[in-house]
Amino acid sequence: MSWFGNLFKKETTSAHIAKDRLMIAIATDRQNSLIPNMDEMRAEIIRVLEKYICINDIEIKKENKGEVDLLEIEVIMKK
């Protein structure tokens, strides 16, 4: 097939659709895959906090606020 033919074909082939879908899916995956060693980090944060306060649980969330990525750590304390 000529490059000319290719030019038109590219937009509609299933391979092209696959690439577009993958780009979006992977971008979302990367965004959502918090910190790779999440469990370890979580356990360590809890250990440190417990030295000073009585805690129930912590919740860790990663958020994208435009320019920056935000890591939110919510500490739920014991009443």
């Binding site: 082939t13 299933s14 092209h16 690439k19 992977i26």
Partner: peptide, 14 residues
Amino acid sequence: EKGEMISTEDILDI
């Protein structure tokens, strides 16, 4: 060739 499989170039882009 038929556009039914993702090419190396595209995989490396991703």
